[in-house]
Design a protein around this nucleic acid. Structure first.
Lengths: 396, 396
DNA sequence: GGTACTTATTAAGGAGACCATCATTAGTAC
DNA sequence: GTACTAATGATGGTCTCCTTAATAAGTACC
């Protein structure tokens, strides 16, 4: 009951409720007729028409040509104007900067990826972020001023206000007001979140964990991490430090990637980013040394995973991150270990979104915030679709 | 956005919304005047009057004599009729059965406690539960038919439907439809929940963690367990198996109580239930052997606690259970260990509700369910206050 | 004891949002 | 060209809320 508003309301509140209801019935679906909307929302046809007309006037909804070939008088059809606003999701990794442009339904319109040097100075990295976003906008035929929101996923500890405390893999990320700095670059709200959490969100909204209420996302790669979705929402924790089970010495997660990166099957001189691939490939082919390395790795992985599963009893655990390209190699031994410990074994799956996970999660995160701003049923009256002003963050 | 209803509504929905708003403004507070209610709910005075009159007619609200001594015409005052319904919370432990009678605001009206034998046969235990509830009702001058709901907290794994899979400390608790069996005893809905989770709820609603959104409750006693409150709600997990970090071998929680129960300072022949008390008391006085035992115990405790804190980043961690009577002894070494591992140290407190924790949590849990039934803003129309029929559980 | 002041109550008028109903319209089927 | 189908558009009614103004019931003070 805690999140329910205490305030009552008048007729306009009811209209707002019904407007939101109509928008929800339209979003991410085929164009709908008034009869369909009336049925979905539970409103009468005349009222539905009223609401749709108002939303059309505001610019949220648009009429499309009627569908032909049916009996009776052709029904007018309406759709949500997902192209009414645009947002950019950014994944700032140590070695890559990815960005994607999306509409209000989260459809990706353009995408870019450019390499980065982990030890690049701050200015260079910030400039690269800006370039990545700009080239996305360019590909989509848009400009900065069309942007409604930018969401950034990056490694490290991020405060609720968008400050970065520190990051293990990006030296320049250290006690940094990233939201503030990017706020000078972009003429809109900038959100910062931990990348593993965003990946978890993407898998829950559009990946292998779609529809699940409680999800544990395990990031396995050159660094380890977790992201939690609890009750369908991204869980940040009181100080936005949730998911850092990697710091628990008993898991051995800090050094776990070494098991795969420096096994005997990795050829001398292999760059670190390709090392684990050799081990995993060899293990897939039955190489004993590689299988041993995989065994040691999954043993450690299982400790942290079991801690999360036993504590939270999620519906599904998703394996993501760089190593998850070899989920077929990692999942069986991991499952085997978990089954010995877990009271109730959750579903266990490899990520289906792969490298784009964080960017997609950033987009989904931004959309959640926009929805909060525009469509929260207990929020202010429904606004016309104009770029939200840069206002203090609402408590989510 | 997942829990928001898609359905729109008509005028009656608005009235329902405002009725709920008024009830929330009245509950658990001093009697209020119309002007106060109007301000709290944001409604106009005439509308507030309308709503209050309707609620009075339904029986949810009652007028009380006006307060004297103020300027101007005395205002009529109204209060929520918390005594309109009653519920019972039960704590079924291995050695004790506690029960408490409460009104709809959660005020405890009567309380009983009677010993039980851990190995008592099922029939005997069920009869003891019934007797406990009956004597509570008797003390409050009520009968079974006044009961609206019974909530039971007990050890072990409880399914969402109220089946008990198994319990380590009560042999008779094994693959048992406890909700069904008690449903034959009580003429109302019976809820079953894990006791650690209910204790966590009580601490969050009325204990040391009041108002916190994310809470980790550590049950330390002859058995170990945890209860989680996430986003203000009791977290059960997909299969209601959340909080079972005790099963993680790396924590050593299964045998941890032994450290305190069988230290050298415990006199020969001490009954097991008193053993740890000797160790803790000796440690408080500086005894080296006892301090060593406490050190070993808190080392294990810290592993599971750190796992929960690192994963969830709670606002506060509450130490409860039998051993928490000596929280002053346990907290300093626990804090010391946690500070070395945790990225952000949460508040760390001993339980303030003590032995009544589970019973109070059961009451709070029952009230949550009743609120869901009567006052959910997206639920059915506001009903008059009559004992809820026994219906299939609504998804929470 | 009477008057001024303060605060609540009650009543009346008006606006907004919903619903049900029915005549009308624009297609397809034959 | 006629029958059928299904959506549209218009009308009137009800409900809930709001604003405003007149009335009522106390306290404070002379």
């Amino acid at each position: 009951m805690s999140s329910l508003s205490l305030k009552g309301g008048d007729l306009s509140r009811l209209r707002q409720l019904n407007s939101v209801s109509v928008i929800k019935a339209l979003r991410g679906a085929e164009p709908a007729t008034l009869s369909m909307l009336a049925e979905r929302t539970g409103l009468s046809r005349p009222s539905t028409k009223d609401v749709v007309d108002e939303l059309t006037g505001l610019g949220w909804v648009e009429e499309v040509p009627p569908a032909a070939g049916a009996m009776g008088r052709p029904a007018r059809r309406y759709r949500f104007r997902a192209d009414g606003g645009h947002l950019v999701g950014v994944d700032i990794g140590a070695h890559n900067i990815r960005a994607a442009l999306a509409d209000l339904d989260g459809n990706v319109l353009a995408e870019t990826r450019r390499p980065a040097r982990p030890d690049a100075p701050l200015e260079e990295r910030l400039a690269a972020i800006k370039r990545a976003a700009l080239s996305c906008l360019d590909l989509g035929g848009l400009t900065m001023s069309d942007l409604w929101m930018v969401a950034v996923g990056t490694t490290g500890l991020v405060t609720p206000e968008g400050r970065i405390i520190m990051s293990a893999s990006i030296p320049a990320w250290k006690d940094l007001d990233l939201a503030g700095l990017l706020g000078e670059t972009f003429p809109c709200r900038v959100l910062i979140e931990n990348d593993s959490r965003l990946a978890a969100l993407a898998e829950t909204r559009r990946g292998v964990a779609r529809g699940a209420r409680d999800v544990v996302f395990l990031h396995v790669g050159r660094r380890m991490g977790t992201g939690l979705i609890l009750d369908g929402k991204l869980h940040r924790g009181f100080g936005a430090a949730a998911g850092e089970i990697v710091m628990l010495p008993e898991t051995g997660w800090v050094t776990a990637p070494e098991d795969l990166n420096s096994s005997a099957v990795v050829p001398e001189g292999t760059p670190i980013e390709d090392a684990a691939g050799f081990t995993l490939a060899a293990a897939r082919n039955g190489d004993a040394t590689a299988l041993d390395a995989v065994g040691r790795f999954t043993k450690k992985l299982a400790v942290g995973a079991a801690a999360a599963i036993l504590l939270l009893d999620p519906e599904i655990v998703v394996l993501g991150g760089g190593f998850s390209r070899s989920a077929d190699v990692l999942l069986p031994p991991l499952r085997h270990r978990l089954e010995r410990v877990c009271l109730r074994m959750p579903k266990l799956r490899g990520s289906t979104l792969g490298d784009e996970c964080v960017v997609l999660g950033a987009i989904d995160y931004a959309i959640d915030h926009l929805d909060q701003f525009f469509f929260a049923p207990d929020g202010p009256a429904l606004r016309p679709p104009v770029r939200p002003a840069i206002v203090p963050e609402r408590t989510v």
